[in-house]
Design a protein around this nucleic acid. Structure first.
Lengths: 231, 231
DNA sequence: AATTGTTTAAAACGGACGTTTTAATCGTTG
DNA sequence: CAACGATTAAAACGTCCGTTTTAAACAATT
């Protein structure tokens, strides 16, 4: 029974698409998982591709309602906001135990965008990005360049995404004992937040000085792997 | 003519697997791209899966010989080493213009590991990881925890990986003008390096104090999105 | 010359899978 | 009741694709 057939299909399709990927996921498997007849899929969605797009959109809506745009009490320090933001992001990434299929699905879209990606960016990534930028703005000198702020935001997001993207590689590099002791959402988000706050509060003008003026440790003309780039 | 048939197949398979993914890439397309008979594939590799594994391994060997483990003059400052390391990593990620298929291929392995992933970690990721750890060791207080060092290394790698993983999303979030002005390998690596160096040289004991003692800005018991995690 | 390893061309096998169809069954609505 | 939408079961269609096969060349080696 449960819900109507359409949503049963949608809910069953999410994990399957997330785990197997679009190609390897078969309509038959999804319908079997949803305990639904094969013809019902065609009835509701017409084609596999349409089902996929709807699934991604629903995953995004899920996430939005599960973790709405953070709202803090007035007077909350920007540092605390940043910590909360990172905490939320990391939690979405590595989830509570089992792999959150919504995030896996979105990650697939990020790496190999399809038709569903544009809406994803507009409805999900961009708003999050804006919130992060507002938090950073409170922490940064007023003269900080627009592009510098963007890069700093990407630095935050990049560190968070890493633990979803490279989850399996981390498991191969770090032994189980250390992972279980130090790689929960709590400690990871604290690490990333502390790192960012330390960098932002560091002495010197690395944030505002024009590119190429930094801690004064540069100056080597030749660096390894200069232009022997790929291909 | 060129090389022998086997390597022609291998070279043709790389870009195809990287772009289409394992499932969507067809043996027929690869053989067509290699100007090679369909039966030759079977002759040399037996099955598609074997071809894929060999392709990944070759991509890894390519990268290693293209950008060997960095070796600096004795006396090079650790900060300079870090800059070089990040520069190399970023360059591999975003390449010189066109998308480097080797990295795309490896990224696929990272996100959805197959049989080829373990060798990849052993021969490629782990050595790189060790090098980065050595550089960080020179920059860090001696009392820094092992796990803290690891997390810092992941912070570096995560920021670099981001620009390959989310390349398309960045293109949707940042307008073309800013991207062309600020998102080349040079500036991005400088940004990441400067950020890390600033964080490491920041005042206070955020690096060495036990978890939960930090900049003193924490303390909120409830954070948004606490345990409303996915699913 | 004979053998053996490579390569090609062309065709076919066989399975997997997206999609469609048909026929039948309920439940709801008019 | 009749009509219609939703759903199911089962089967089939048609295509794509990994894999295999066959037969024929060609090259290098013995």
């Amino acid at each position: 029974m449960a819900q109507d057939t359409r949503t049963r299909i949608l809910n069953a399709a999410g994990p399957v698409f997330a785990e197997r990927g679009y190609q390897k996921a078969t309509v038959r498997e999804i319908c079997r998982a949803a305990s639904v007849n094969l013809a019902s899929m065609n009835y509701h969605f017409g084609q596999k591709e349409r089902l996929y797009i709807e699934t991604v959109k629903q995953a995004q809506r899920n996430k939005i309602e599960q973790v709405p745009s953070p709202q803090w009490q007035p007077g909350t320090s920007p540092a605390e906001k940043l910590r909360g933001f990172v905490r939320t992001l990391i939690t979405r990434m590595i989830g509570a135990g089992e792999a959150p299929w919504q995030t896996r699905l979105m990650m697939r879209e990020i790496m190999q965008p399809t038709q569903a990606c544009q809406e994803l960016v507009q409805n999900y990534f961009r708003p999050q990005f804006e919130i992060l930028l507002e938090i950073l703005e409170e922490l940064l000198p007023a003269e900080t360049t627009q592009s510098k702020r963007h890069q700093l935001a990407f630095s935050v997001v990049g560190q968070c995404l890493y633990y979803r993207v490279a989850h399996e590689v981390v498991a191969l590099l770090i032994d189980k004992k250390e992972r279980e002791a130090h790689y929960d959402a709590h400690q990871l988000s604290d690490h990333i937040t502390d790192l960012m706050l330390a960098a932002l509060s560091a002495p010197g003008s690395w944030l505002t000085s024009p590119q190429d003026a930094n801690t004064g440790l540069k100056g080597s003309a030749d660096r390894p792997g200069e232009d022997t780039s790929s291909q």
